[in-house]
Design a protein around this nucleic acid. Sequence first.
DNA 1: TCAAAAGTGTTCTTCCTACACCCATGG
DNA 2: CCATGGGTGTAGGAAGAACACTTTTGA
Lengths: 234, 234
Amino acid sequence: MLIKYDHPTRILLALDCIIFGFDGEELKLLLVKRNIEPEIGKWSLMGGFLNEGEDLEVAAERILYERTGLKEIYFEELQTFGKVNRDPVERTVSVCLFSLINIHAHNPDAAKAQNAYWINLKNRPNLIFDHNEMVNLAIERLRYKAALHPIGFELLPEKFTIPQLQKLYEAIYDMPLDRRNFSRKILSTGLLIDTGEKNENSITKKAILYRLDQEKYQKHFNAFLNFMPDVSLS
Amino acid sequence: MLIKYDHPTRILLALDCIIFGFDGEELKLLLVKRNIEPEIGKWSLMGGFLNEGEDLEVAAERILYERTGLKEIYFEELQTFGKVNRDPVERTVSVCLFSLINIHAHNPDAAKAQNAYWINLKNRPNLIFDHNEMVNLAIERLRYKAALHPIGFELLPEKFTIPQLQKLYEAIYDMPLDRRNFSRKILSTGLLIDTGEKNENSITKKAILYRLDQEKYQKHFNAFLNFMPDVSLS
DNA sequence: TCAAAAGTGTTCTTCCTACACCCATGG
DNA sequence: CCATGGGTGTAGGAAGAACACTTTTGA
């Protein structure tokens, strides 16, 4: 590459990750209490910079791996944020990632080493830069996608019960759902396989543990499944 | 800004625009036959670079305006493309825009001055770099969004008939639709206002000209309206 | 045996789909 | 008066919403 484009602006490119988890009761975000400048001591999303000679998508996978210790997790691009002064240190354009992980597969020691914590979505602290805006957009996206696509499973352990799944949806939309209709709707997708096991943790009646039919999941991912009744999204 | 981030990589940031139009029969793309290097003589999307001191969104609006002569047109971010060698001249990350315009509001002289042409989507030429990939993704997005949101109107003139709208949807999904059901579905949204006028161009019975209820359009934009029967997207 | 959670069935209503007839226009 | 395209109505079926009872379990 000898000749370059005759344009003066070259910019630092960051990737910021919105990482959702679900503990069985509440939606959570993996946030970091910064021990580096700028904004030391404040809360922010986890992120990193795009490297020389690194594909953007590879960088996304690398950073998510560095931050969670997990590979092959669900993520998609949320949006690219590029306000001039969004980062006071220098101009930085941030490709923002939207990611869902099984909170129990995540190593809590690795998180501590990075000063990262799972924070309840509902009482999250104020974040630096434009990270609040990113999180708000991510919540919107989560609500949007989960209503139409079987995306919620990404937040659950491999084996899960229908009541767990329902609690997840109730947390996402912050509304109660009818057990009977929810159960029927989910089962009618044919995406769940009865493992034959029961949830031994339960105090009362043990619920059936299901796992996802991976093949059908891939195939039907883009079908509109209408998981939610009457969702009209802000 | 005295101290910068201790990271070596600063990158050129491009914006590439996928601009859809509809001539009443076919979906079209605004493409440019390049008269500059690299890849002179080949077809590409229209684009530009992000400037120093310019917000990303402002750059998007600027470039769309430079390329179409139109302001306040519908656009959204499609995706950011960042493969290392996607541009042979130098590493360039491209924020790809997805835009819908009223083809008749577009100035054909301005287009010619830029060597730009409206090309039928179905027999579009091969494009440079990763632009084919961008277009394919944009078609997918168009089909996705138009099935759920009242986005199609952006491609039509201010006043339009229901048969025109139906032809648009048939072009987007490349499938015939039932006139009666389509009409009922569209009218039931309450988004159309009867202008009292009729389409004088028609040879036979003159169709009613409608216009969009802008207020309802804004308010209901994010409601899922289920415009399409049985759409399961790729 | 009781409380708490899980599983399942039915009815009503709504919405979607398939389909046919009539009207307006210009040649 | 006829061919072409536009407007509208209806009956049947599928899916969603509202709702209640039974089962399992451990205390």
